[in-house]
Structure formats: structure tokens, C-alpha cells
Amino acid sequence: MHELSLTQSLVEIAEEHARRAGGTVIRGITLEVGELSGAVPEALEFAFDVCSRGTLAEGATLTIRRVPGHGRCAVCAAETVCHELTAVCPVCGALGFELDTGTELRVLELEVD
């Protein structure tokens, strides 16, 4: 359940950016969560309700954009989706697969008043 500390960071980041821009209420937060990031979107949503209470982000809509795992094999040069954290190329089976997306855990944008 490290989603709880991740969500605390989410609220801190959102409040900091909103305050810096002179915002007083955060209406929405868009978050990017890679499918291989180790964080569970549902757990982030659940934790957000608790962590945002009493903050500028209370009541904000949390939009989570899920990013699929994708990478490239250094051996056969295949570029393909990948649903596991692995170095095994899903196409040729060699130990040369490197992910380029899927591990994101990033706040993209805020809607503030």
C-alpha cells in the first residue's frame, strides 16, 4: 500500500503548483500511471479521497491516464507492447528487451480556480 504515500505526494505537488499560480481551489488533477509502475490506479483513487480532505484538492476530480507497457528489443529490434516487467523479448525471447513506457507515475496537469 505505498499508494498512500504516493497519493500524499500527489496532493503536495498539486497544492504547491496551485498556490504558486495563485489558485485557491483545485478542480481536477490528471495523473499518468504506467501499467508497470507498481502502483494500482484503484488504490490511488481510494487514497486520494482520504489524502485530499482539508486541502485545496478536496473534491477535485482525479483523472488517471493509464500508460501501457511498451519497449524495444536490442537483439531483434522488435518494438512491441509488454504487460510484464521483464528483459525477455516477447517476440524473439532474447534478454534484450528494454521498456520505453509503462513505468510512469507523473502528475500531468491541474485545473484550478
Partner: peptide, 18 residues
């Protein structure tokens, strides 16, 4: 008229502070 919500571009990793 309420001011329209503004969109702020953040692009910050959740683990950035850690």
C-alpha cells in the same frame, strides 16, 4: 461570471520529492 478554471501544466513525478 465565475472565472473559468485554468489548466496548469505540471509534469512532475510523484516520487520527485523523495
Amino acid at each position: 461570471h465565475e472565472p473559468a478554471p485554468r489548466t496548469l501544466c505540471v509534469e512532475e513525478d510523484l516520487l520527485a520529492k523523495n
